[in-house]
Write a protein that binds this DNA or RNA. Structure first.
Lengths: 328, 328
DNA sequence: CGCGTTTACGTCGTTCGTAACGATA
DNA sequence: TATCGTTACGAACGACGTAAACGCG
């Protein structure tokens, strides 16, 4: 049993049982993989894949089992390599982020720009995902860091680091009935108008939905989208009142629209960075994290990550405070 | 980075930084290990060991870090091999048990005999340990299964499987003042006599100590030992009242001594098997466990171990019931 | 001078890629 | 017939053990 054999095994499993495609993925030839797979099966004494004719039909139960152990071994091997790269100051590599559209579009740009400036040999891979899918992407092990928001709870599935607090704002056309208001509308006032908001607001357990129903109202969601820019477009088209994160509105770009604070009952949200457990973080990933959470000490962060401990974090700054300190 | 290199690295660390001894351990030559270590260090880009002259002086911080990841990788490799051996019905191997003297001497023999009968190619390695050290031996990863008793709490550090309930008994010479009693003495009566018991009774948090002090008495421990046979010897010598586990007294062997039940306030204990987490159990280890816990379904056990879930176990049988069912 | 590590050298085993072959839909 | 996996072959690489050299106590 060699690491190469296990790497090939995982590649085959991840390529839909297509050995040719797997060979491509690991930069080797197809006969090489075939041979190593056969040798591994011979040594273990049972088939890892069920064959139909000559091609692989499905993974056997034993193969599934071996696969999970193999994945752990390979991820530990990656950990050693990552640690070594940090130790020798080698900052080449990839940084895979998985996050929602709003974070990707409005929060991360400055932070990522900083990383690519300080670590020019890093290629950042920004994976967009729906609200509920971010953490499952992280759990699958293909991402180094997730950024996600919650209204209260601490995200599970990794080490959660609080970044900043933010509130929702309302966005309306200047001709809209609410445009003249110089205060936050009440929930009752807002409930009379069709809303345009994030896709996740459709779910009954979303904080928007819960806030309305707790007060005895039913939100009218005229339209939902993952993408804040799409929401703005439909607000401009007069479809309804935009309900989105304060990070997503810009005084310059959205000067044609009126911005109102959301009703006070709508809870404050917290944006979190979530790091996979048992995974060594590259220095540039830590740098990104530190840009997003400058209030936290770099070495405390490193200790929390390496020691797999969950510290009691201080209350994160508001988005206004954070964006202030990032740009200056 | 190869598995061989990591195996060598661990061997060197476990041999007190003596490469020659490590080579012996892994059945290879010393220059081979030296070379692989050097190559690993070259590839990682930093020293794993600090040198003084030519010999290894200490592990570096980086070396320590790499070592922990390497150990995990190797243990996962062992898991794959163990799973494969099970799958192909290969029942050769070692079974390392760590436990206290009483279990080793009075409880495990029948169970181990059963294993060596059903699995003649297994060599059982019974590691004796003091009460408090059993679980740390297990945690170090050198044992497959620990057997230990507690008075109430569930043992930590692995998947704990309850085996049986047992009580303490008193052992006295026939000439002893308590010998004529046909009931359990009260705590007050017992407190007047010097006691001979297990070493762990010295600790103030031991259940014996706690029981006495809770009733306002102070136990007089004339002598303590890890070994039940030693305790009996000193009881025969008239040193005091033996307080030991009911499993340790035999109607035949101890016919010259009087056996009394312990005071009712002394709590019932539970013997547990503790299995290391994240470790594939060989079939013969499961067989041993099943002999010790016949009330539990074999497949439930396998599922609990493989799935790393902690089921709510049924109340275990008493030692009398268990020893009955084992021998028949 | 003994112990332990490093270096040098020759051999052996293994892996790899290319190319030809076989099976399947 | 196109696609995908297996088998065959030769070259290159790497690992290993033996033997000798080197440092240190």
């Amino acid at each position: 049993m060699t690491l190469t054999q296990l790497r090939y095994l995982v590649a085959i499993a991840d390529s839909g049982l297509n050995i040719t495609a797997a060979a491509e993925r690991v930069h080797a030839t197809q006969p090489g993989l075939s041979r190593q797979l056969k040798q591994l099966e011979d040594q273990l004494g049972f088939l890892l894949f069920a064959r139909r004719g000559r091609s692989l039909e499905s993974i056997t139960a034993g193969g599934e089992r071996v696969l999970t152990h193999a994945r752990r071994m390979l991820s530990e091997a990656d950990n050693i390599r990552a640690y070594a790269a940090n130790a020798r100051g080698d900052h080449r590599g990839r940084l895979v982020l998985v996050t929602t559209h709003t974070q990707a579009r409005y929060v991360l740009p400055v932070a990522i720009t900083g990383v690519t400036r300080d670590f020019p040999e890093v290629s950042v891979d920004l994976q967009p995902a729906a609200d509920g899918e971010v953490l499952s992407h992280l759990a699958s092990g293909h991402a180094d860091l997730a950024v996600i928001s919650t209204a209260g709870e601490i995200p599970q599935g990794g080490l959660a680091v609080p970044l900043f607090r933010w509130r929702r704002v309302l966005l309306v056309r200047s001709t809209h009935a609410l445009a003249g208001l110089d205060r936050a509308p009440t929930l009752a006032e807002l409930a009379r108008h069709p809303l345009v908001s994030y896709e996740s607001s459709n779910r009954p357990e979303s904080s928007l939905h819960r806030t309305f129903t707790a007060a005895g109202f039913e939100p009218q969601l005229a339209m939902t989208a993952r993408d804040a820019d799409v929401i703005k477009t439909y607000v401009r088209a007069g479809l309804g009142v935009g309900v989105l994160a304060e990070m997503a509105v810009s005084a310059r770009e959205d000067a044609d629209l009126r911005v109102l604070p959301a009703p006070l009952q709508m809870p404050e949200c917290v944006a979190w960075a979530v790091l996979p457990r048992e995974r060594v973080l590259r220095d540039y990933a830590l740098a990104l994290l530190h840009t997003l959470a400058p209030q936290l000490d770099r070495h405390d962060l490193r200790r929390a990550i390496d020691g797999h401990i969950e510290p009691t974090w201080p209350t994160p700054p508001s988005w206004a405070e954070l964006s202030q300190s990032i740009t200056t």
